[in-house]
Nucleic acid binder design. Sequence first.
RNA 1: GCGUCGGUGGUAGAGUGGUCAAUUACAACAGACUGUAAAUCUGUCGCCUCCGGGCUACGAAGGUUCAAAUCCUUCCCGACGCACCA
Length: 395
Amino acid sequence: MSKVITDEKRIDFILNRGVENIFVKESLKNKLLSGKKLKIYLGIDPTGPTLHMGHVIPIMKLKQFQELGHEVILLIGDFTAMIGDPTDKMATRIQLTHKEVLNNCKNYKKQASKFLKFNGNNPAKFKFNSKWLAKMKFEDVLNLASKITVDQMLKRDMFVRRQEENKPIFGHEFFYPLMQGYDSVAMDIDIEIGGNDQTFNMLMGRNLVSEILKKDKSVITMKLLEDNTGKKMGKTEGNMISFLDNANEMFGKIMSWNDGLILKGFELCTDLEEKYFPNMQNPRDAKLKLAFEIVKIYHGEKKAQEAQINWENTFSKKEIPDEMEEIKVNAGEILMEVLVDKKVLSSKGEYRRLVEGNAVHDLEKNENIKDVNFKVLENLTLKIGKKRFLKINVN
RNA sequence: GCGUCGGUGGUAGAGUGGUCAAUUACAACAGACUGUAAAUCUGUCGCCUCCGGGCUACGAAGGUUCAAAUCCUUCCCGACGCACCA
């Protein structure tokens, strides 16, 4: 059995870095100092096939606890994902089938293993909540539902807002927090970690654990990575960085972050100690450093360096990037049709508009393509808009 | 079940017989400016087009009309009220 680390300095760091709130901080700190091995979990609903920045933040926190020697669990909400979390959704989320859900989380373990160790000493566990939730009888559900009142549920911000706007709240949505809460009971959890948007659901678990198991479950809520308009960096909003992005893509996405996100990015997405954070005198350099550090975590130092060089060449010096998507065509094909056919663009109309807007650029001749019916006669290197580069090779 | 109101493009939300592919805002995309930022300004923002126009769309299906997102009928869905004392 591995020993649990109780270094107070380290614990203080873990309880502060990137943390929004802890319920309840003192008792949690005491638990950690006691030397007892604790069970800590993070739940993820597999609503999409890849993990992204929003998941990384709590996963990194989980990792820190694993390093202290505690038992950490990555729980896949394969059952809860089918219900749909009403959090932060003004409309009811579309329910997924179990098949879709399982398909989504196929690669989660692999992706998460960038951070968590799933083997060796004190391996992280990977669990599915359908294991207990799918087996519950109506009786069990009723028993669970009896622990809360409708009023407690309705007080929730989300539901209040929906009521004000005369939008529906469906019965099953009430069960979501209960189910998530029950996960803590089923696994006999000591600590749950999640984004601060999960506060309500996690506190539900705290109540249920205290009612049913008669013990104190701590809840750690993490800050969210938000841009200055208050929008989450998340899958649903479309501005996410995915685990599967290659180094160049990831680097570029980070560089296009708003300045206001830089320090938050360091705090939430890197392990760097605060004294190494760059000063913000030159935001661009600070952002380069951030992009480098983040890409390093996913792709290693070498790739991160290459990505940085690639980025600098491409955008600062306006050179052509080394790597880009390639499309093979037959001589004489019409460019418009090729691009639509290969799904680079969604319609011919879009192509026409881009051409009219001088957005399609031939990098070899260094001129914009003006002819809508441009035919591909020789190899081409195209830039569409600012970010899209494309090689067209003639067979 | 009864009654009232409502269901419009990625979102919010106008429009209530022709001038509607549908005002506007946000998001998105592109151009200028830059640090591939942000902010700002400009343009685009259903699909196809020989740029004349054609096609498909305003919950669903029918109908009225020369003409329907708009009127009528039926159905589906939602909010609210009533269905107990008041």
